[in-house]
Design a binder for these strands. Structure first.
Length: 894
RNA sequence: GCCGAUGUGGCGAAAUGGCAGACGCAACGGACUUAAAAUCCGUUGGGCUUAACGGCCCGUGCCGGUUCGAGUCCGGCCAUCGGCACCA
């Protein structure tokens, strides 16, 4: 077969350089105290979301973010940073186990194979990972520390006074188990029969499992929970100083869902007489949560959730049958049906009445499924005049509607249904007040009279942390006489038992329960049989990278403080004490000087990954990080300072890549044809990183042509068809125009890498290459600078060309990775003559070339005398002339 | 319904409030070649007009506003995508 001629020999140079990088440990980042550690270098931590190594291998979506971080990592190294750029494997979890059940192969085996496959593929793309720091969440040496961190959480509680996680020993109450950050609760969970496990709320989409799309039902079970809600405020407020996309911060805020309002207590009163206002003996008051306490006078009924246990206590004998019927009807409905917004409101009257504490009105108590047991107190006050749902309900059941907020320019009657900001009416204590004033006053009143208090509620639920699966971290917990206790740290890691049959039992009992010997801990104690969810390992992997081999601690203090310790970015290196770099080491391998840099909450300088992890991984990891920070194990309150979501890459047909459409692109196929450098550059040239964009093979060819042009700037084919250094490459001074374009390119590429605008950086380099292509002599200095600029994007090609140049023209080093990043000289960008745009009434008419120092008056004169300007002005009178120095002249006429 | 993105040629996209469409793809024309591929050079938003050089008008989802000047800023719509959704 006649092999299609390659535009340049990437198939030879790419493996060559990958081997050299491996041998030279080119991308190994030394830790403080290690050989070759240079304390004068600032650190930079560029992190990718590590992949789940599936059997399918990489697709083109994976390397998009990876290429972006790799470019930044290589760029920062050239700028003199000590760069941490690691990779690892998030390998516990459902898909491996599902596959194992299907094929009978142990998940450890398939995981090993898949990791090997992924690693080979990643290496072929030429990523500059420090593979000596590779981590794998399924490695006992790794999950030993996942289990250890769980124990730290288990041994902690959230102290509401300090607003911090603290060791449980600081808790003064009598029931520590009720406040632990890891606790056991009998809770209604999302049970998936098909997967044989419970799932987190986040893993359930529209009543179906995110993995597999199987039906999910609610069912009460004993589960491990993590008290993430205790940190809700901290997680919310901590977003403030992070360099994350606003849209992503909004997603997290939304998910946490803080609502501020009041809890109000309503006494249940006797139902026998219509004027009976005495509290029912033995019946507790009903608490409601509302964000609109200012509408309390308009509360004309109450609704409690059908599942609320209070229903049994308050229902009157006359209503018992209809309540029972309604509850039975609700029980048959799925969550999906129940939350169908289009559905008409339903409900039933309990026969009981409550007393509105502010005006002593007797109001009926209903049950209805539009009130959810899981939010607030499972009961609401109905204010039909100023809440859409309540209004709909009140109209349907003929309940009283009293307007208590007057909308601007409307009558009281017209204000029914108004939910905006207005003035309080029909509310003796509040009349005339604005919403803010009324809310403050009624809360004061409630607190003073013992009817309620200020309160904040969250949509966020505690994190359901246990799974009934085999392929996950076992809990380091033992049960003795019905009580849980921590496994001693000395017994970590706790490895799962070797099981031949790891299928789910189907009963909700975890597969680990089958390992009778393993479960038995001692005569009177047995092991916990649940496993942790997949998110556990990914909650802290970025910390392990800092010190992956440490067997004494989950991460050494010094490496953690070095890599995570604030953001030592250049922008901040100049403004404190005139310092440009951390001072050289003293007695320690380096000095930690937290005061030297303005505090940044996050430690990782750049974190790139998919937006699908916005509320799962990114929230969980922040939660663990904050707990570990509070407990004194970490030096920053947030894990990730700067976060970017790469956009999805679609198939050539603009549909989501999937086997179903047959539009999946395999990166290795692309690399076979065009080489890794072209693949990398194309992925970055497609468009803005954050944007969703379709793949185009033609586009790859275009970028490949660009790289071939770079190659041919420097190489030519001799008679024998071999590539040799071109005679046109000469050690001459570049021409003036070439100097200008060179410095413009340095400026553009440098700025664009900092802002991750890789597409425009590449386009500028194309412009420069196009300009050099037909130059009779190719100036060596310009070529060398170009190669350094292009190196982060196309590392193999530029390494090879650099080395080739160095043979004929010896430079400091024949390794391009040892070169400093070039700096542009602003003076070389300035021209002596400058183009001025002439406009008439804002419309472009002509452009003229004038001396750089032309005065405004001279520009105006030139514009007025320009024939095209005169023509456009015609008979009109010139009213005004706007002169923008060095830019344009706009003649205003009419 | 609420929150958040996005809307520019045939396509992917550029554009500190100052020449809209850089760069690339596709298409077309030319050079080289016996020929093709590759490579190099050129044209390429739409319309009107000129024998030609050229000239003129329109154009960044829609409507309005601010401004000497708006793809960009402000207000109101429409469409597409994503997230949340009876959250009190």
């Amino acid at each position: 077969m006649s092999e299609r001629r390659k535009p340049y020999p990437f198939d030879q140079i790419e493996p060559k350089w990958q081997a050299i990088w491996d041998q030279n440990r080119s991308f190994h980042a030394p830790n403080p105290g290690e050989e070759n550690f240079d304390p004068a270098k600032p650190k930079y931590y560029a992190l990718d979301m590590f992949p789940y190594p599936s059997g399918a291998g990489l697709h083109v979506g994976h390397p998009e973010g990876y290429t972006a971080t790799d470019i930044v990592a290589r760029y920062k190294r050239l700028r003199g940073f000590n760069v941490l750029h690691p990779m690892g494997w998030d390998a516990f979890g459902l898909p491996a186990e599902q596959y194992a059940i299907k094929t009978g192969q142990h998940p450890a085996v398939t995981t090993r194979e898949n990791v090997a496959k992924f690693k080979t593929q990643l290496k072929r793309i030429g990523f500059s990972y420090d593979w000596e720091r590779e981590v794998n969440t399924t490695d006992p040496a790794y999950y030993k520390w996942t289990q250890w961190i769980f124990l730290q959480i288990y041994h902690s509680w959230f102290n509401p006074e300090t607003k911090k996680a603290e060791p449980i020993s600081s808790y003064r109450g009598d029931d520590p188990d009720s406040v632990r950050l890891a606790y056991v609760a009998e809770v209604p969970v999302n049970w998936c029969q098909e997967l044989g496990t419970v799932l987190a709320n986040e893993e359930v989409i529209d009543g179906k499992s995110e993995v597999g799309g199987f039906p999910v039902v609610r069912r009460p079970m004993r589960q491990w929970m993590l008290r993430i809600t205790a940190l809700a405020d901290r997680l919310l407020d901590g977003l403030e100083d992070l360099d994350w996309p606003d849209s992503l911060k909004a997603l997290q805020r939304n998910w946490i869902g803080r609502s501020e309002g009041a809890e109000i207590r309503f006494a249940v009163v006797g139902s026998s007489r219509c004027d009976d206002r005495t509290p029912q003996p033995g019946v507790p008051t009903i608490s409601v949560f509302t964000t609109r306490p200012d509408t309390l006078y308009g509360a004309t009924y109450m609704v409690i959730a059908p599942e609320n246990p209070l229903v049994d206590q308050i229902t009157t004998d006359e209503q018992r049958e209809s309540i029972k019927a309604y509850r039975a009807e609700i029980a048959t409905k799925s969550d999906l049906e129940r939350t169908d917004l289009a559905r008409e409101k339903t409900g039933a009257f309990t026969g009981a009445f409550a007393m509105n504490p502010v005006n002593q009105e007797r109001i009926p108590i209903w049950i209805a499924d539009y009130v959810l047991m899981g939010y607030g107190t499972g009961a609401i006050m109905g204010v039909p005049a100023h809440d859409e749902r309540d209004l709909e309900f009140a109209k349907k059941f003929g309940l009283q509607i009293v307007p208590v907020i007057q909308a601007p320019e409307k009558t009281a009657e017209e204000s029914i249904g108004y939910t905006g900001i207005g003035t309080a009416i029909n509310s003796p204590l509040l009349n005339g007040l604005s919403r803010v004033e009324a809310t403050a006053r009624i809360i004061d009143w409630l607190e003073q009279n013992g009817h309620g208090r200020r309160d904040t509620r969250y949509k966020l639920r505690d994190w359901l942390f246990s799974r009934q699966r085999y392929w996950g971290e076992p809990f380091p917990i033992i049960w003795r006489e019905g009580k849980h206790e921590a496994l001693p740290e000395s017994e970590l890691p706790l490895e799962p038992p070797a099981l031949d049959d790891f299928k789910p039992t189907g009963t909700g009992e975890p597969p680990l329960a089958k390992a009778k010997d393993w479960i038995r801990y001692s005569d009177n104690a047995s092991r916990e049989t649940n496993t942790m969810p997949q998110w556990a390992g990914s909650c802290w992997y970025y910390l392990r990278y800092c010190d992956p081999g440490n067997d004494q601690r989950f991460v050494g203090r010094e490496p953690e403080q070095y890599w995570m310790g604030g953001r030592n970015d250049e922008g901040q290196m100049t403004n404190v004490e005139g310092m440009t770099k951390p001072e050289p080491a003293g007695t320690s391998s380096f000095d930690i000087r937290p005061s030297s840099f303005p505090a940044k909450p996050g430690g990782v300088d750049l974190y790139i990954g998919g937006v699908e992890h916005a509320v799962l991984h990114l929230l969980y990891a922040r939660f663990w990080h904050k707990v570990l920070f509070d407990l004194g194990h970490l030096s920053t309150p947030e894990p990730f300072q700067r976060l970017v979501n790469q956009g999805m890459i679609l198939g050539e047909d603009s549909r989501k890549m999937s086997k179903r459409w047959g539009n999946v692109i395999d990166p290795i196929d692309v690399i076979e044809i065009h080489g890794a450098d072209a693949f990398r550059c194309y992925e970055m040239f497609m468009g803005p990183l954050e944007q969703m964009k379709p793949w185009s093979m033609k586009g790859v060819e275009g970028v490949s042509r660009f790289l071939a042009r770079v190659w041919r700037l420097i190489m030519e084919e001799n008679q024998a068809g071999e590539w040799v250094l071109s005679d046109e490459v000469q050690d001459v001074d570049p021409q003036k125009s070439e100097v200008k374009i060179l410095h413009a390119t340095i400026k553009k590429v440098t700025g664009d890498i900092e802002t991750l605008s890789f597409n425009t950086a590449i386009s500028q380099m194309m412009i420069m290459v196009n300009a050099l292509t037909n130059a009779p002599a190719k100036p060596l200095s310009a070529l060398r600078t170009l190669l350094v600029l292009l190196n982060p994007f196309a590392p193999h090609l530029t390494s090879e060309l650099w080395q080739t140049l160095a043979r004929k023209f010896p430079a400091g080093s024949d390794q391009i990775t040892a070169q400093p990043w070039p700096e542009h000289d602003e003076r070389l960008l300035i021209e002596d003559e400058i183009e001025i745009v002439l406009q008439v009434n804002g419309k472009f008419r002509d452009k003229i070339t004038v001396a750089l120092d032309a005065t405004d008056a001279a520009l105006e004169t030139a514009a007025r005398s320009n024939p095209k300007v005169q023509n456009a002005v015609g008979e009109q009178t010139i009213r005004k002339v706007v002169v923008v120095p060095k830019k344009l002249v706009n003649v205003v006429a009419n």
